[in-house]
């Protein structure tokens, strides 16, 4: 019995490690966008770099939607909700005509990173981003 439980636990851990490796990014801040738009791209990267308590940020840019997934530094996690709000405001100010979603949720950050890696058509990408938007709004 004990052995089985241990095996289950190791299995979970191994899966986790694999996921962790897949999600690892070389650059800390990255953006992805449907069409070429270097101006907004660098704007976003600057915004993210300015925020000290963030260790990794990924922005997905499609049509008029900007989805920003950020990973907060471990010891700043306590203020996650506040950081999220502040960043959201900053982005809204910078891109008044876009629909902005900043999320400090790890899941959103992971998914945003995954989207970066994949070669997706615009249609598929939009679908995925919409889904993440909904996911981020779920309460419990």
């Amino acid at each position: 019995m004990k052995k089985h439980v241990l095996r289950f636990v190791t299995l979970v851990c191994v899966i986790q490690l694999l996921v962790a490796c897949n999600g690892a990014q070389k650059e800390k801040f990255a953006t992805f966008h449907g069409e070429e738009d270097t101006e907004s791209q660098s704007k976003i990267e600057k915004l993210l770099k300015d925020e000290k308590s963030i260790q990794k940020g990924t922005a997905v840019f499609i049509d008029d939607i900007v989805l920003v997934g950020v990973e907060v530094k471990p010891f700043s996690k306590m203020r996650k909700a506040k950081i999220e709000k502040a960043l959201q405001k900053k982005f809204e100010k910078e891109f008044p005509d876009k629909e902005i979603l900043v999320s400090t949720d790890l899941k959103i950050a992971w998914e945003a990173q995954k989207l970066m890696k994949k070669e997706l058509s615009e249609e598929e990408l939009k679908k995925k981003v919409k889904k993440l938007q909904e996911l981020a709004k779920e309460e419990t």
Binding site: V9, D105, L106, K131, L135
Partner: peptide, 20 residues
């Protein structure tokens, strides 16, 4: 272990940190 399970659900299903 709970944290590992949380990550497991986040990585493989549509759960956020909040909902996992």
């Amino acid at each position: 272990i709970g944290q590992a399970i949380t990550f497991f659900y986040m990585a493989n299903f549509d759960f956020t940190e909040r909902t996992a």
